[in-house]
Nucleic acid binder design. Structure first.
Lengths: 332, 332
DNA sequence: CTGTTAGCGCCTTCAC
DNA sequence: GTGAAGGCGCTAACAG
């Protein structure tokens, strides 16, 4: 099948290439009759402009890149959904890159994208706290760039984050209002600003109400975490656990099963979680859930503002997390 | 910051553009000393070739497109992971398009991709059984195309599928070996070849062992499904349910809770499911799980064969599903 | 209103 | 071993 490009259309219609080009872009300086003929043939032959030729010529690609640590995870899946929705709406294409938490892959992707492949980049950082020189280089290039969820504190860039401290505060107060007096915050020690903020929200609420600060710092090791939680429940006898991360909640959940504790009767368990199926657990867990779709959508909109060269009024946008109460764990 | 392209390298090194181009591609007709100088400067300035210029010139983009119905779903997340892994390994880029089950979006995406944006397309069809003229058009264009999971039976194209009938057969035999004698297959009526194959596997196993065929066809309506299952359990008193789809298993799971039936003590529940967290249910469910990552990887490898113009020996590749037994539901 | 021309950045014949 | 020139498909400035 013969290639269908502008040249072909021009030849078949006995017009010049530029006339066809202008007609296709609905230029006002082309007669209606010509436009009609061009459109008609284009439709008939199903003409689609070659995007690489346009990109090269116009120096804009109508494509954005998304760099994330992983995708087998409800949070990032929903984020992709939000991003794709907005992008498709604006006629943009989305390239996806997975780092699998490896900073070196992130560096490599960023390097590859630094030469006009895309109009902008959305990114959730892999090894936070690691070197960010590659990100600084990227900023130098003046490529529109928006971070979301896992964002580098050190850089002054547009970012979309969750209101971790506030939602943690609200969640803790929720437990307090349910009558809990000994609330343990299950966290991890790894340096991660996100955990710190959640811990802070917990502490603020606890102190506001004059309750005892009970923080349990777990480790990366699954088994050790499991034991730490078990010991904590046995010795401190809390009436509520507030987990900073999903996997900590799951661990707590199983420890409760082992100890024969009923949730939420004997012990309330509340967690930050994006696991859609937290509601499938029996009993279901009450969760603080990030609005992943909204984060993706907000990040993309912000990126488009940068691409269009618009001024950005808020460099940091905060998306509120939802406190989702499962029926059987509600306090009322 | 001044743009860094071949021209710039050439100018700074007092070489011609073509020499630099050849040096960068490590051509044998360039002296080692020149190559070294070129590489050195390229590294120093972090030169990255403009991909659109290359694509235009070489008529190949090192990019593939992935069209899927949705992503907020463990199966497709893992598929993306598999695809991205193989693609990244080969230096390819992946564009992602979500149809949200709308055939018209699928048609639109396919149309957009038909003019050289990508070297090949991976696709899981939305609205199976609907019109496939857009897919036929795509095949006409001779653009490499591989289907996976949801594939159009009508077309003779490379496809990656799950061994639905066989795994269903194996799963049913597993239940039989556990001593079950009244096994209900919970399915849906909607015309979908995938359900039919699973039903067939069940029937084959049942008939082989001379047990009664007990098929419960549910509806799309959630509430109705729920009632149908409840009635079935009450009246037919099966000793096992084998769900064809995840959501049917979840429904069955909750019905059991309501009826006070223990899983798997009173009733075994087994299901086709890609929900990673099926193991989090309490009790966990035994599942037949598609090897999503492997499907993505296999599809991508197949696509690369087509892109390279290699002959394809098997047009249909079958990926085995895994029977994942949860500890507490194992029969032994 | 329409056509001619000159690139976008890269690769590749063809010449020397 | 290196350089000059043409063109991938498209757009836009400049002519008529």
């Amino acid at each position: 099948m013969e290639k269908v490009d502008i040249k072909r259309l021009a030849r078949e219609l006995n017009l010049s290439i530029s006339t066809v080009s202008r007609a296709l872009r609905d230029s006002h300086e082309i007669s209606d009759s010509t436009k009609k003929k061009v459109f008609e043939l284009a439709r008939q032959l199903n003409y689609q402009p070659n995007p690489h030729a346009s990109s090269l010529r116009e120096q804009r690609t109508k494509t954005i890149a998304l760099i994330i640590p992983e995708v087998a995870n409800n949070f990032f899946s929903l984020v992709i959904d939000g991003i794709e929705s907005i992008a498709a709406e604006k006629g943009f294409h989305v390239l996806i890159y997975l780092t699998h938490e490896k900073t070196e892959k992130e560096v490599e992707f960023v390097r590859q994208l630094s030469n006009g492949r895309v109009d902008g980049i959305l990114m959730s950082v892999s090894g936070l706290g690691q070197s960010i020189t590659h990100l600084e280089d990227l900023m130098q290039k003046n490529i529109p760039l928006v971070f979301f969820d896992r964002t580098p504190d050190e850089l002054d860039v547009p970012k979309i984050i969750t209101d971790d401290r506030d939602s943690s505060f609200r969640a803790t107060e929720h437990l307090i209002q349910c009558g809990c007096k000994k609330i343990v915050h299950v966290s991890i020690l790894r340096q991660m600003s996100i955990s710190d903020k959640r811990k802070q929200g917990y502490l603020d609420a606890i102190n506001k109400h004059g309750l005892p600060e009970m923080v349990l710092d777990c480790s990366i090791d699954e088994e050790e975490t499991y034991q730490l939680i078990k010991t904590c429940i046995r010795e401190q006898k809390p009436d509520a656990l507030f987990a900073s991360l999903e996997r900590l909640a799951i661990a707590a959940y199983y420890v409760c099963g082992e100890l024969g504790l009923n949730i939420p009767g004997d012990l309330k368990v509340l967690s930050f979680s994006n696991l859609q199926t937290a509601s499938l657990l029996n009993p279901p867990l009450t969760t603080v859930t990030q609005s992943a779709f909204d984060m993706g959508a907000a990040a993309t909109k912000q990126l488009f503002r940068l691409i269009k060269g618009q001024e950005i009024d808020e460099r940091t946008i905060t998306i509120r997390a939802d406190l989702i109460r499962r029926k059987s764990t509600s306090c009322d």
